[in-house]
Design a protein around this nucleic acid. Structure first.
Lengths: 355, 355
DNA sequence: TCATTTTCCGTTTACGTTAACGACACTTAT
DNA sequence: ATAAGTGTCGTTAACGTAAACGGAAAATGA
């Protein structure tokens, strides 16, 4: 047991020897190809099972001469939504890993405030010669159209970040949005007494595109209602991105009395944090928001934001490419649904949170 | 950009062609071996830099004929400490990945309540022919002795799970224990009002061995004291493992009034959870504990345990083997300190938490 | 001067898997 | 009868890197 020597690697060559055939025949069985008699096939399969043969993935990767082209279709990173940069980080990590396998990956970006940019790049993808596309959907109808076109052209699709009704061929990798809202509700319940005032805040330009925010809100209210603690829950929209406009709206809203908990439904919680940081005269509510962005962490460390709920966007992007690799190269099945962990970040554990 | 074709893999052969030498010479430069003139070496280095050559790790892994033996030295899994099973899971995943490289890994288990078992297996490791050992230390003095012996015999060492004063050669992979305690304090601060009664509870047989619990307690008290909210903080030891004994002690302690928050300093929080679950007549405090064990999650779902603080023990084990691989095969540096993320698990996100 | 060592470098095999290509026997069509 | 087709299988050259081995030239020793 201590001396490791007798157990050399059991490979395709050994199988061939045991079965009295050539390695080519073994290869045919392993890859489910034809040109092997049933008797020989069965004998080889038995040996594979008996010796628990595991193919050497490194050798396979070396040998295989791939010519796969993947596309990635995600929103452009902007100042207000550094979120997508994180996603891109993970994707680029995946791209690097796939390169030695001869897999080319191209990233296409679209403006999440301008549907025409989405249509434009999606057509580029359709006319490029791709085998699969990773999609982070925002515009529901247009994405469904695009996916339908993809399927016509035998282009595999996989969603990340948020799921939409139209089924992709390979599934969805991302958070369960309803649970994400429920978790926010759960945290809220620890912060305040029955009867507390709670404000749900949607902050974003073009809010009509962000249908998935409703799912979060649904989970949030669902959780709080079932507690039956007579909370006074309000919802407000602030359809702006820049601080000055948000500030104006918040000032107006806070005139009528500050809530005890403020739940910002997306990653724009930093501008709300900035508001309370710059207005110490206003009683700060507990502040819950989303995503591990630098600006958000900044107000976390200042003690203005209390909880950040995070979903590892980088891991989503990385995993999506990883699944494509496994689907094409290792012939594994699609994912259907791979839920991301939902992480809680506070001022005391943010420094160890990793991509 | 869309057509991926011209960019074939740039390899050692291409470097050789460009430098008018054979691939063997390039190999010598890449592996810092001798038998190359300074002029040739420099020319090759320039080309490598100019074309940003990246070695194909899959090819290297295939080619290299390793004969490395790793040892893993961790506590045995018992009914009370399923924690170590998680750690072992990650280690076994790592072992599987290392096998195709010709790396043999042997796991040695010791009884964390019996120092003699530690000494016994550690001697086995010293006499076996190993190149490196992953250590999850419990007994501080004995571990230090062992590490000293290892260094004498050129045996690389790496700690996981908890750090101890004696320096290992390759570093430590695990949580920052003080921060772990601070995080528990942070959560506590959201749960109660100033002046609340807080009880810190150490539950384990042979508590004298668990010096690292003190570090957690230190962080916990440190955080709460700096808030200056006049909390009434008590510490109690329950040096037992089985439920009946813990129950007896807890009944005695609760007679004098139940605390508002109960902080269990290790993974034995499930027995405390069981206590309050079976004694509904006693007012349940908020309950904070450690580790994603089935028993703990069970009382989390029942609403008895409020927060579990987790540190991904499986990832520690996996990473340790991964670092050894990189140290020996890829000649990368040691880690020194790789902090694990500290995760907060509640009833609303436990179902997505993954190993 | 000749023998020996040292320095520098190329040829070749191996790692485990894939797949193109061809060989052979046997069947079917003409 | 011969040609063409089909089913089964083996030989062999790749993939990119590592390293054993040997060879030629230069340096050193006597």
């Amino acid at each position: 047991m201590v001396d490791g020597k007798e157990k050399k690697n059991f490979g395709i060559k050994d199988i061939a020897r045991l079965a009295n055939v050539s390695i080519a025949t073994v290869d045919r069985v392993l890859n489910n190809r034809k040109d092997v008699s049933d008797a020989t096939r069965q004998k080889i399969k038995d040996i594979i099972k008996e010796y628990n043969y595991q193919p050497n993935l490194y050798a396979r990767s070396l040998s295989v001469k791939n010519n796969l082209n993947f596309a990635v279709l995600i929103p452009k990173t902007s100042l207000e939504t550094g979120y997508w940069q994180l996603c891109l980080d993970g994707i680029e990590k995946g791209i690097k890993e796939l390169e030695p396998f001869g897999i080319q990956t191209t990233v296409f970006l679209y403006d999440q405030e301008d549907v025409r940019t989405f249509v434009k790049v999606s057509e580029q993808i359709l006319h490029g010669n791709f085998n699969a596309v990773v999609i982070a959907p925002i515009f529901i109808k247009e994405t469904e159209d695009f996916v339908r076109q993809c399927h016509k052209r035998k282009l595999q699709t996989i969603y990340i970040n948020s799921d939409i009704p139209s089924k992709s061929t390979l599934g969805y990798i991302g958070p369960d949005l309803n649970s994400t809202g429920r978790l926010a509700g759960n945290l809220t319940s620890y912060l305040v007494n029955p009867g507390a005032k709670i404000l749900i805040l949607n902050v974003a330009k073009g809010l009509e595109n962000y249908k998935y925010l409703d799912t979060k809100i649904e989970g949030y209210k669902e959780y709080l209602h079932h507690l039956d603690r007579q909370f006074e829950i309000d919802i407000a929209d602030i359809p702006y991105n820049v601080y000055e406009e948000v500030e104006r709206e918040l000032l107006r809203k806070m005139k009528t009395g500050s809530p005890d908990v403020l739940f910002v439904t997306n990653s724009r919680v930093s501008v709300v944090g900035q508001f309370f940081y710059e207005h110490p005269e206003i009683t700060k509510p507990y502040l819950i928001g989303f995503d591990f962005l630098e600006a958000n962490v900044n107000y976390l460390t200042k003690g203005v934001v209390d909880f950040l709920i995070c979903q590892r966007p980088d891991k989503q992007g990385y995993l999506a490419l990883n699944y494509l690799y496994r689907f094409f190269l290792l012939k594994e099945d699609g994912v259907n649904f791979k839920p991301m962990p939902i992480d809680i970040i506070t001022i005391e554990n943010y420094m160890f949170y990793e991509n």
